[in-house]
């Protein structure tokens, strides 16, 4: 199987704090990490390779320093890393990102399956995966929690819904976005880490892709961020300490009218 995993480098949003005085993001010491959901995509790609043979190419679009997340993916067992990076891509929204990544994947021939995390933790849009599938005109299955089987150019897949899951069959090539339930990502081994350090990362610029310039970056992005602001902090709560009986009574009094 020829597998492509699309990943994104994101700031570790769990480390992001708000400066209470200036009401701005404190980014000092915030590390860049692989988008947490993409780690499951990488693991699933590597597991499929281990099950069916083939190759896993991991691809990311971002600034030059995003190379780090490609190396980390290789340490988990991906075979090759592609960094799609160009000034022309800056300011891409999900439409332009999906387009650019689709063009890059097009350059990798005969892809059987593309795997993405269900969404990125910085933007939380969940739009780029389906965007890539649409640009490539291939079917997509989102929120995948299990790949049951792959045979005869078809994949049988379990897809999470609000109430449970659906079992669908899709023709390949296809794109899937995965949820956390699909696997437990491995910790990259020592040998994997050493190999990743030495691996050659391919770097593709706009000129290397068969691409329309006006569909890239800010120009190719319909959405504009018009305002960024910090949400008002939650007002300070009321604390009950001491006798549990009394605390419970007080709380029930405060809440009973809110419960329909």
């Amino acid at each position: 199987m020829n597998i492509v995993v699309c990943i994104k480098q994101v700031p570790d949003t769990t480390q992001v704090r708000i400066d209470p005085v200036t009401n701005t993001l404190i980014r000092e010491g915030v590390q860049s990490i692989i988008n947490p959901f993409d780690v499951y995509a990488i693991e699933e790609g590597v597991r499929l390779k281990e099950r069916f043979g083939g190759k896993v190419t991991v691809i990311t679009m971002g600034p030059p320093q995003a190379e780090a997340v490609l190396r980390e993916s290789i340490s988990m067992g991906c075979d090759e890393g592609v960094l799609v990076s160009d000034r022309a891509f800056a300011g891409s929204d999900t439409l332009a990102t999906g387009y650019t990544l689709a063009r890059a994947i097009n350059k990798i021939k005969d892809v059987d399956m593309i795997i993405c995390g269900k969404q990125a933790s910085d933007g939380d849009t969940a739009q780029v995966g389906p965007g890539i599938a649409t640009q490539l005109d291939i079917p997509q299955v989102t929120y995948v929690k299990k790949i049951e089987e792959i045979a005869n150019g078809k994949a049988k897949i379990e897809r999470m819904t609000e109430e449970g899951f659906e079992i669908v069959e899709t023709s390949m090539p296809c794109l899937i976005t995965v949820v956390k339930e699909i696997n437990e990502p491995r910790i990259p081994s020592l040998k994997g880490r050493m190999a990743a350090k030495k691996a050659v990362i391919l770097a593709w610029k706009a000129i290397d892709l068969d691409i329309e310039e006006n569909r890239l970056g800010l120009t190719g992005s319909p959405t504009w961020v018009s305002k960024i602001f910090t949400p008002p902090p939650r007002p300070k709560g009321q604390m009950f300490e001491g006798d549990p009986e009394e605390s419970a009574t007080n709380l029930v009094d405060l809440l009973k009218n809110h419960i329909g």
């Binding site: 910790i187 081994s189 020592l190 050493m194 350090k197």
Partner: peptide, 17 residues
């Protein structure tokens, strides 16, 4: 470099597992 790699790997296992 390799010892730092070992330390980071073991630290990750310690934190996560």
């Amino acid at each position: 470099e390799q010892q730092i790699m070992i330390r980071d790997l073991c630290r990750q296992i310690t934190e996560e597992k």
